[in-house]
Structure formats: structure tokens, C-alpha cells
Design a protein around this nucleic acid. Sequence first.
DNA 1: CAAAGATACATAAGTTTCCAATGTATCAGA
DNA 2: TCTGATACATTGGAAACTTATGTATCTTTG
Lengths: 113, 113
Amino acid sequence: MIYSSELIKGTLKTIVLKLLADNKKMYGYEITQKVKELTLDKIQITEGALYPTLHALESDGLVTIETEYIGKRVRKYYSLSPSGKNKTKEKVSELADFMETMQFLLDIKTKTV
Amino acid sequence: MIYSSELIKGTLKTIVLKLLADNKKMYGYEITQKVKELTLDKIQITEGALYPTLHALESDGLVTIETEYIGKRVRKYYSLSPSGKNKTKEKVSELADFMETMQFLLDIKTKTV
DNA sequence: CAAAGATACATAAGTTTCCAATGTATCAGA
DNA sequence: TCTGATACATTGGAAACTTATGTATCTTTG
């Protein structure tokens, strides 16, 4: 089962930031594979969503880029900047809070009836 | 604190369906107030988001409408249709599953490091 | 009793954010 | 040699929401 795409909306940026916080340094393709692996294929980040997101994070100054060559192939490593680390904490705790609220909403029936 | 709006995206339809499942019969304005109340003002559904959503649910056959007049003022009550009840179960369990996955992703660090 | 705020519906224009499709190129294995 | 994986990127389009605006009624308060 793959989650319907609308659920990913609004969480992608947070997922990427969190992965970078946990892994110091990752490149785009690696991120897509890591998310796929960690979520047992239930979340698949498409490249059309990821790359614009990474570029946005960079232009917001939240990540820095190091380019490496593996043979002749380019690989761009992304790392959190100091402000990126702060932003990650904010986003993660906001999302955690939001999910707690949502879980309460979803469980209303069993809790109040 | 109010959640940044991108988090709501993709969950609104599920929230509305779930509220209707728990309360049998609600009207639009009531839904906005109920969500506000249950989430301690952290989720505020705007009318510009809610009414189109309700209309979409209706045209998908997931809800039925009863119109009432309170004095001269119209009030439209929404109820789940049979297929709406099934859809609610699907959407709620998908969202619950998604949030479990997300919580795992957010907690990776403390679980694996 | 007038004005403000709450109730209650609705739509339109604009933005954000993602998906699907497409493109380029390299590398590994059968 | 060709297929599939690796690795980047962009474009067009759809979906879902926000902001703004509109109409109208009812209630409360100075």
C-alpha cells in the first residue's frame, strides 16, 4: 500500500530536513531510497517533488551543497546549515504536535462515546 | 499556536468525514467550530476550504444534505451516506497508518542511534 | 436603537505543492 | 550490448488550500 499523495503534502520538507539531521550529509537519490526503505515502500518520494524541494531549502539557506564526482557522475551532497538545524527542530516538533492533535481527532469516538 | 496551513492539506476531507461519523449530522459552520474547539484553536478550518470540500463530498455521493430554516436563515445539515461510511473507515485508517509511519520517521534518531 | 460581532451560506482569484512525464548522462551486470 | 539502476534536472498540469469578497440574518451591548 502506498499512501495517497495528498497526505505527503506539507510533510515532505520536514521529512527531508529530519533525514539530513540524522544523517549529516545525503544526496537526492539517496534520500528517495532511504525514505522508501524506512517506510517499507509506503512513502515514495518522486524526483519531481524532491529536487525542487532541495533547491528551495538551499535558496532559503537551510542547507549547503557539496558537489562530488563518482567517476564522471555528479553527486550533490546536502547538509543542514545552522539555521537549517533550528528549522528542523521547529518543523519536527510542529509536526509531532500536529499528529498528536490529529490522533486525538481520529480517536474522538472511542474516547468520548 | 496555529499549525502552518500546509499541514492541514490532505487531511481536511478525512477530518470532516470523521466528524460526521461521530456526530451523525452537522452543518458547515458547526464543523468549523467543533474542530476549533476540539483542537484548542490549533486547527482552524476556513470557510473557503470547507464549503468546496463539503460540495465535493456531496457530488461524490459520500454525504447527503437536509436543509433547515432557523428563522429565515438557511442551515444545511450533512450526513454520511452508506458509501460515505465506508470511505470514512478507509480514510481514517489510512491516515492513522500514515501517522504511525511518520512518527517512526520522526523518531528514527532516538530509535536507531 | 444602532452598531458590532456572531452566525451561515457561497464563490473567485491566486499560490503552493506535488505528480507525471520527459530529458540527459553514467555505470554495472547479464 | 542492452537493460536496469544511479543521478541529476525541468516542465506542464492538477489539486487543495488561502485570501478576499459577497450576501444576509440574528444577537448583544452601549
